[in-house]
Design a protein around this nucleic acid. Sequence first.
RNA 1: GCGUCCGUAGCUCAGUUGGAUAGAGCAACUGCCUUCUAAGCAGUGGGUCAGGGGUUCGAAUCCUCUCGGACGCACCA
Length: 587
Amino acid sequence: MLTFEQQLTGLIQQSFKALNFDEKFGKVVISNRPELCQFQCNAAMPLAKIAKKAPIEIAKEIIANIPENDIIGSIEAVMPGFININLTTEFLASQTQNLVNDKRQGLAKTKNPKKSIIDYCGANIAKSMHVGHLRATIIGESIKRISKFIGDDALGDIHLGDWGTQMGMVITAVKEQQPELPYFDESFEGEYPKQAPFTIKDLGVMYPDISGRSKEDEGLKEECRKATVELQSGRKGYRALWQHIVDVTMVELKADLADLNVDFDLWLGEASSDAFVPATVEQVKASGVSRVSDGATIVDVTPQGKHEVTPLMLLKSDGAVVYATTDLATIKERVDEFKAQEIVYVVDGRQSLHFYQVFDVAKRSGIATDTNMIHAGFGTVNGKDGKPFKTRSGGILKLRDLINMGKQAAFDKMVEAGRGDVFNEEEMKEIAQKVGVSAIKFADLMNHRSANYIFDIEKFVQFEGKTGPYLLYTDVRIHSMLAKASEAGLKAGTIIPATTDSEINLMLTLDKFKTAISKAYDDKAPNVICDHAFALTQAYARFYNDCHILNEKDSAKQASWLALSTIVAKQLELIFELLGLQVPDKM
RNA sequence: GCGUCCGUAGCUCAGUUGGAUAGAGCAACUGCCUUCUAAGCAGUGGGUCAGGGGUUCGAAUCCUCUCGGACGCACCA
């Protein structure tokens, strides 16, 4: 289904053809002056220069040559040469009618679906998720859902940090405490225990402890490094212990992700790409792009414009692999094993140089020649002081605590609003979970991903204005009203031509869904959808206020309004799905 | 030093393939519940789009310089 502006553009272009004007100018856009008109075409101004004629005259000619149609209700040329267009209410109603039973709300699937891997979250094994993972996780989840909706074969990959020094540290810590365990006995031949020798709570204490001590103690640091190397080179006992660490961490990780309504198609990580490291290094070397400098193997990178870029480090002077190497190996894995045509990295924007290097080398070495690689970078979550968000004591805020803050705030707000009289304790908690998490997620997603934003829980719990709860509230109100209508035996009917401005505005807004989703998909920018969602809820709230549905005497009008409300609820819920927001039945 | 991003209302931010009088939300003020959830709706006030110069019929948007801020710059990830 085409948007209104696309259909109008089609009409204008027929006029352009008749007049022999360059069709590229014949574009109709949504009016930036809604009080003057719904749509506008500004082609007359640039054409005036070419045709050497007054723009207003050109505008009039364009209008005169538009074919007969039942779409345009009014069209006029305005000084200096703007063309202002309004639709007929009949056309508006019939187009809106098409949305009633449309699960895709008018947006067709792409004709060229891609195999796409969305890399986001980046949680670490043996460490809890913290505030730094928030944006990566929820923006990535939304980008993945949008891609799937558009029709791509998109796979979300958590890309776990499960192969780094933190693993050696935890292994060393376990060895300190329980050296008698069979994992440390290299001559051990039997079956290792199924039960992990530690709990998630133990890990939570062990990792920060040994991480802190190894910063001061060179000997300990070396021991951790050695354990890491031994793990990576396949020491059997360490691999078994590693599996325990992964399993134990995953329990907590999955609980956090479930709370955030986030899920993955692939639970891969650095460990799974490790197998591709030797082949990757070999391919880069064989391609001839690398050279040795100060004992290290590096790759010179294509300059950005006129400016030289720091080379990529492939192997350290001691032969060890680094971050860039494992990322290249991951690309190789995704291209060779998954046939990825596109890889999207939802990773902190401060790593843009790293991705520039990696993508450049991946292309030039032949690891990924036809794969489109995108770094969808995002800004930091800052505190009120404008600096990266910390706890009051200056520590790193755990994601779990952040989620709980949202839940508690939503709960308190419900109590304040007197909802405690309507719901019991258990219902309140369930609603607060959805509302609180949605408040945080929407507040994050509504900001353009590349910008930093200030995390102000006090503000998110206001629950007024452009917030997640406001969106949920609109949907909940619609369902509450529809339920009452159904009890009264009222049914939705055909959408009839609008008689009020708020209806017209609502119908025009519903049509913008298609444009919003497409733009969000193209730019990997969920905030575009947030803007549309807010505009839609505002348009509905105004309509809801102006047109009292259940009291309406005219039954055709009433049936039309019920249908309109149903569409809004449907489109809103589709948007919630794409943003990863969960909506309660009541609130 | 080199590079990237940014500077829009008191606050938090949209808006960059150049279009009419620059938009939201919050905060402030004024109305609206014997009617579908007032977590709502309607309205008012609030701006040298950091600053200068340029390109043009037209610039927040493009070019250039200045000031201010954030971030990044091979043997960490």
